[in-house]
Design a protein around this nucleic acid. Structure first.
Lengths: 109, 109
DNA sequence: TCTTTTTATCGTAATATTGCAATATAATTA
DNA sequence: TAATTATATTGCAATATTACGATAAAAAGA
């Protein structure tokens, strides 16, 4: 066992799970908040900013990129990472819809 | 290693990571959506609804409850689970604030 | 009390995640 | 071309997650 049974859930549920899982780590939350905070697109400065090694940061960046939460543009020897609007929009929309639907129906508890 | 270095991040970042991680699985997303969909608070019906065993569902419910995303009320031999408004509100607020802050600052990519 | 029903917990196997040292790669500069 | 700089990848150890059979616990009814 130990493997998620994705085949039993809807495409949307699996897609949201992948997107949400990409943010389910404080380092990746910190990276996203840092990218949001700095106006310009800082690249390897994330390694200086966070208390994790360069390979670890690189791995977290890869996961965020795969999930569609950030974008990376090559600029010489360095890479310019920034937030991908679409990923954030998906999360925002999902939770807003969820909250709206929840508040519409009076729950019993 | 294999252990998250929580001590290096802010309390808010760690708290959001715990909350987000609780939703980072399609089964738990499906449980939340089911609880949101059914108007009344269904309990062990979740086991019939989802294609996972009773112990597995029970474990997922425990994680959602620990994270503050659902509440459970004992009703005789069964338990009535329903969505905890506060958890959902935290997620909604976080992503709305993030999106707002992001859109305010024109990013470079 | 003895069943029955419902949910939780234990134990365990399979797999995934986290983190980093070492190393590779790729673009720039001397 | 060689050295430098920036980032990615590999390999691995430690830990966490997922899933479920077996079993326990707790309340209700016979």
């Amino acid at each position: 066992m130990g493997v998620t049974k994705t085949e039993h859930f809807t495409d949307t549920q699996n897609e949201m799970a992948i997107l949400i899982k990409a943010l389910a780590h404080p380092a990746r939350i910190a990276i996203m908040e840092y990218l949001c905070e700095v106006n310009s697109c800082i690249c390897g400065e994330i390694v200086n900013e966070l208390p994790l090694s360069q390979p670890t940061i690189s791995q977290h960046l890869k996961e965020l990129k795969n999930a569609g939460l950030i974008k990376g543009t090559v600029e010489g020897t360095s890479i310019c990472y920034c937030i991908d609007e679409k990923g954030i929009a998906k999360l925002q929309t999902y939770f807003n819809q969820f909250a709206t639907q929840f508040l519409d129906k009076k729950q019993c508890c």
